[in-house]
Amino acid sequence: MAGTIGTLSGLALGPAPARAGVPTPRTQGWQAVPAPGSTPAAQLRRVAAAGPRLAWAVGEEGRAGPSQGRGLAMLWNGGAWTRTDLSHLSHTRLTDVAGPCSTAAWSVGQPTGTGSPLLRWDGTTWREAAFPGAGEPGVRLNAVAVGADRQVWICGSRGGGAGLLHGDGGGELWRWLDPLPVARANLYRAMVRPSGEVWVGGDQSNGGGWSGLVARWDGAWTVLPPIAGLRLGIADLHAAGPDDVWAVGTEAGIGGPPGRPGNPVLSHWDGTAWTRVEAGFTVGSLSGIAGDAQGRAAWISGWNYQDQTRSTYLRRDGDTWTVVRGPAAAAPAPYLNDVTSVPGTTGFWSVGMTSPTPAPPTEAYTERLEA
């Protein structure tokens, strides 16, 4: 399904030259920040920041040949990224991270054995946390979000149905909420609004493929109309309110050769209907979206297949989105998986990998837009 489409990081795609006659995109302030210590092939999938001196980034490393690699987790201390030790754990492919403070962060990952792990950062190291369904076959934890009240929200699946796992701020009390009332659905991203509403995004089967899925939990489920497309999946979303929701992802289209790149998807919900918005490039993907200090969608991370010489972003300019490029020569062909804001500042982090193919010599990669 579209979980492998939301980012095209599993596809062996080579660079394509920039097209003649295409206007040069604007540039603004993004700088590469060294992320040392990853063993190729490596990538960072998601990033979360608690402030200018504290951030976490997770992914995987050591993917070579048939190896599925092992988990990779990094910590930002205000001056540099450092690895955090995962040698006491055996989990691969950490897929998301969220954290409000130095002594509490959460991460989820791909299954090892029978089910997905839930990890908690205690200020010193990552430890596995217990939750209902831990170790059950078919339990998947795909994404995690933490609200201002430190309540934890994890989207995934249990018993064949997609839904939310909710935890109190202390991480002691967990319960699965009523399943999403959509058959054959997958959830890949979650966010919490200041009001406490939880928004989730993913995909749902439409018979011949899949469509984009966005839903809201506020004590009960509200499922928005599908985002129509040809094998379209949502990689991330940002809700400024029930009538101002942005969703980003990739539309795979119909067929094509192995490794065929898809098309970026940018859609807006105004409370009544979805409107597709031009992304500024036509082949590639949109992978993450972050809000500003006022809660409005502000930056989108992406990948432009037709010009891979720099990282690609979309920046909100009033009611329009403008293509912005990252630093030159920072990586051979950087691929971004995520972007997030830095609380208390006007800065942002983005993470990904040094090329669009998770095979050696690809390494973990980060960029920063300082306040």
Rank of each mutant, 00 (worst) to 15 (best):
T114M: 12
A104Y: 02
L119I: 10
R127D: 12
L164K: 13
P100H: 06
R93C: 05
G147V: 02
T95R: 15
L164V: 12
C155V: 15
A143L: 05
A104I: 00
V152L: 03
W106V: 02
V139H: 00
G109I: 06
A134P: 01
S157M: 14
R127N: 13
V152Y: 10
D122V: 06
T92G: 09
Q110P: 01
G99F: 01
G109R: 13
R93L: 09
T114W: 07
E128T: 15
D149H: 02
G109N: 10
R150E: 14
S116T: 09
G159P: 03
G99I: 00
G138L: 09
G159F: 09
C101N: 10
Q151S: 15
T124H: 07
D122P: 01
E136S: 10
G161D: 11
V108Y: 10
G163M: 03
R158P: 12
C155G: 14
V152I: 15
A134R: 14
A104R: 04
G161Y: 11
T95D: 08
L119E: 05
G163L: 09
D149I: 00
G161E: 10
C101Q: 08
G115W: 00
L94K: 02
P132R: 04
A98Q: 04
P137L: 07
P100K: 03
G115Y: 04
G161I: 00
T125M: 13
F131R: 04
T125C: 11
S107K: 04
R158Y: 12
G135D: 12
R158E: 10
P111H: 12
G163T: 03
E128P: 06
A129E: 15
C155R: 10
G156L: 11
G161F: 07
G99S: 00
A148R: 08
W121Y: 05
A129V: 14
V146K: 01
A143R: 01
N142H: 13
P137E: 13
G113W: 12
V146A: 08
R127P: 06
V97Q: 06
G133K: 07
P132F: 08
A129S: 15
V146P: 01
V144P: 05
G147L: 05
A148D: 03
W126V: 11
A129F: 01
T103L: 04
G156K: 06
D96G: 04
P117V: 11
S116D: 14
S102P: 14
L118V: 12
C101G: 07
S116Y: 10
V152Q: 11
V108A: 06
